[in-house]
């Protein structure tokens, strides 16, 4: 519960940190949950973010003006987009057939519902793929080296899930070699290890500001 009229639901703490890290660079982010641009709630999974019955009550929350949802596309973007469309219909709205590249924003009964599917509203992937686009161009050789290391670790029985989490292992490996090493993605943006001004970042910031009337 928060008196903040803007609420944002995310899957995990990393997404929460990345959003705050990015938006703090662009519009500032006071610590008070009622004064920050949006009150962020970590829901634990994409299923929990996109729970239809929960969302139908959430949209009726007292004082709510805008509700944002950020979910990962994971391995099947179209399947995730179908789920999003299904949720929108359940909430009484008519979503577009194709997901807008710059993120979805709908008006439902005078309140705004926004959806951003990581990484870019059209590809499979997750927050880590979004953050990959924030890697500075001069860091590309090290990025490439990290990719090879992850691959090699796989051959040495590293237990990470090769099918789903290679991209995740990749960015965290790269972050492990920054100064300071091993920062989480949100802190890496704050500390300018990751670029705040990339095209993807600009697009996300634009969606966020439009959704929450900033």
């Amino acid at each position: 519960m928060s008196a903040n009229p803007n609420h944002l639901l995310v899957e995990d703490q990393d997404t929460c940190g990345a959003v705050i890290g990015l938006m703090r660079q662009h519009i500032g982010w006071p610590d008070s949950r009622d004064e920050c641009p949006a009150f962020i709630e970590v829901r634990g999974s994409s299923g929990a973010v996109l729970n239809k019955k929960f969302l139908s009550v959430k949209m009726k929350e007292s004082g709510l003006a805008s509700l944002g949802l950020i979910v990962d596309a994971d391995t099947d973007f179209l399947a995730r987009w179908d789920t999003v469309k299904d949720v929108c219909r359940y909430l009484g709205s008519v979503p577009p057939e194709i997901c807008p590249d710059d993120g979805l924003i709908l008006d439902i009964g005078g309140k705004k519902l926004g959806v951003w599917i990581m990484p870019d509203n059209k590809s499979q992937g997750m927050l880590e793929n979004f953050c990959h686009t924030l890697v500075p161009p001069e860091a590309k050789p090290l990025w490439e080296f990290a990719r090879k290391c992850v691959e090699k670790a796989g051959t040495k029985k590293a237990p990470y899930n090769k099918e789903f989490h290679t991209d995740k292992a990749h960015i965290h490996t790269w972050l492990a070699w920054q100064d300071p090493p091993g920062e989480r993605m949100g802190a890496a943006i704050t500390k300018k290890i990751l670029l705040r001004g990339s095209d993807s970042a600009q697009c996300f910031v634009c969606w966020f500001k439009t959704l929450f009337d900033i």
């Binding site: 519960m1 928060s2 019955k53 929960f54 139908s56 009550v57 959430k58 009726k60 929350e61 007292s62 004082g63």
Partner: peptide, 19 residues
């Protein structure tokens, strides 16, 4: 704005402010 029984349950469990 009406809340049915199942919606009241969800609101209480998920700490959704319906007042």
């Amino acid at each position: 704005i009406p809340f049915s029984e199942s919606e009241i349950k969800i609101a209480a469990r998920q700490h959704i402010e319906i007042r």
